[in-house]
């Protein structure tokens, strides 16, 4: 039997909001280390990699490895029925064809359960090579969401140029051109508000704004976001989920034809 119980149920609500617009369906791979999900969007241009460690749950039991194929729109609808302060439990019998979500209100006076059919998905799994990135940028996640939203009004591509001075986000289109430069924060007194750049080599890459705006749906999961870049490899946009794991988005770059 599989059972995962989380007092901070809002984390699962936010995780589904962060992936349901990019992916239509995905497999939750559960083993005794926790829950992993890896899936590409339909155009195979971006990939979501979610990890929720077993030790981040208030109760976690996984007698046998189980892979649960789910329609993410359905899961999002079910999780919308959970209160922000509810405890959320996901459970399934071994080789079951349904999964049950149980929501308990903080005062235990209201308990809801939703049972959903599982899907047989044989989605291809991609091997993501461990990479030493030339540039990593840690910045406030709300700042990154704002930049993606503002620049996507100017063009459907965004250029991210990272140098030792800082990072520049640019877009051009019919209206004109826009550039946003962020300098490395000098005195890091509040880590969460700092822009911290580690650069081995300068990197400039171009990405489609629409995917970046899908990624920023994860903003509520973490006050910070980390961008990792190297020449001619996919961008990594990572949101750490406190005490339990992370959600990582990979995006293939756009290149001169």
């Amino acid at each position: 039997m599989f059972e995962a119980r989380l007092l901070r149920g809002s984390i699962l609500k936010k995780v589904l909001e962060a992936i349901k617009d990019l992916l239509t369906q995905a497999t939750f791979d559960c083993d005794d280390s926790g829950i992993q999900l890896q899936a590409m969007d339909n155009s195979h241009v971006s990939l979501v990699s979610l990890q929720l460690r077993a030790d981040g749950f208030d109760k976690y039991r996984c007698d046998r490895n189980i892979s649960m194929g789910m329609n993410l729109n359905s899961v999002a609808k079910i999780l919308k029925c959970a209160g922000d302060k509810d405890t959320v439990t996901m459970k399934a019998q071994d080789n079951a064809d349904t999964v049950t979500f149980v929501f308990e209100s903080p005062n235990q006076e209201k308990v809801s359960d939703y049972e959903m059919k599982l899907m047989n998905l044989d989605l291809e799994h991609l091997g993501i090579p461990e990479t030493e990135y030339s540039c990593t940028i840690r910045m406030p996640s709300a700042e990154f969401a704002r930049i993606c939203r503002d620049l996507s009004q100017f063009g459907d591509s965004m250029v991210i140029a990272c140098t030792k001075e800082g990072v520049k986000f640019s877009a051009t289109g019919e209206i004109g051109s826009a550039n946003i430069k962020l300098a490395q924060t000098a005195s890091v007194d509040k880590e969460e508000e700092a822009v911290i750049i580690e650069m081995d080599e300068p990197v400039t890459l171009t990405f489609a704004c629409q995917y970046l705006n899908y990624f920023t749906k994860a903003t509520s999961l973490s006050p910070q976001v980390q961008l990792s870049m190297s020449a001619d490899v996919p961008l990594v946009v990572e949101y750490r989920i406190q005490d339990i794991g992370h959600i990582r988005y990979y995006l293939a770059p756009k290149i001169e034809d």
């Binding site: 155009s43 195979h44 991609l126 993501i128 090579p129 293939a252 001169e256």
Partner: peptide
């Protein structure tokens, strides 16, 4: 013009 690449060009299916 810019061409959007695909992830399969960078990650190998396992």
């Amino acid at each position: 013009p810019l061409k959007q690449t695909k992830l399969a060009a960078y990650f190998t299916p396992t």
